[in-house]
């Protein structure tokens, strides 16, 4: 039902309706941003990825095979742009986008350390950023894009069956909980 609503926004925007475009951006921008964050890019690089993804959609808006799957189109485009940027910066990237990416970009974490004076907060955030790309994508999308997008829309955009969202979220949180547990015990 709601995916059809996104499809209608795409069709209206393709017909030149600025308002429909803006609504589409407001609903899906958190999703696009959350993909960029999952690849350990700096905020400046995430900004480039997000902007290029939307510009790509502007050019392709009248050419989408299935307008109701615009979320998946945006996620796929953003993922590709992340890998392109990582490669262009000559950083090491695994061949499979879903394998773990543990690099923490220094620029990003130093800005964060100013914000996160609280030690516990800094530890949780640092550990979260060490989770695999797939876990971060799902958790970030649920944190940033939900409830503007429904669970169903997030699932469709990430290419996951709706039934696996709950269990995957659980598994990723469990991973984070354990990592935090071992961080705390090694610090004592």
């Amino acid at each position: 039902m709601e995916a059809e609503e996104l499809g209608r926004l795409v069709e209206a925007a393709a017909g030149g309706e600025t308002k429909a475009w803006e609504t589409l951006v407001e609903r899906c921008n958190g999703l696009v941003w959350s993909v960029a964050g999952s690849y350990g890019l700096s905020r400046a690089d995430s900004a480039d990825v997000t902007q290029v993804t939307w510009l790509r959609l502007v050019e392709h808006i009248g050419r989408l095979r299935d307008p109701s799957r615009v979320g998946a189109w945006l996620v796929t485009t953003a993922r590709r742009e992340c890998l392109r940027l990582l490669r262009a910066a000559n950083r090491e990237v695994p061949g499979d986008a879903y394998t773990k990416l543990e690099t923490v970009e220094p620029g990003r974490s130093s800005i964060e350390s100013l914000v996160l004076r609280n030690e516990r907060a800094a530890l949780v955030w640092r550990t979260f950023r060490q989770l695999g790309t797939r876990c971060q994508e799902l958790l970030r999308a649920l944190l940033l894009a939900y409830p503007v997008l429904s669970y169903e829309e997030v699932a469709s955009a990430l290419g996951m069956p709706i039934g696996s969202i709950g269990p995957t979220r659980h598994r990723c949180l469990e991973q984070l909980r354990r990592k935090l547990g071992s961080e705390v015990s090694t610090n004592i």
Binding site: E22, V25, W33, A47, Q51, W54, L55, V124, L144, L173
Partner: peptide, 29 residues
């Protein structure tokens, strides 16, 4: 943990308002 993350992400890595604005304006291209 989920509540902590929700608070953290909005502090440490919020969607940049400039990025949102640029996305809106990209339609002019």
């Amino acid at each position: 943990l989920w509540q902590e993350l929700r608070m953290l992400i909005h502090k440490a890595d919020p969607v940049s308002p400039q990025v949102l604005q640029a996305a809106r304006e990209s339609f002019t291209w």
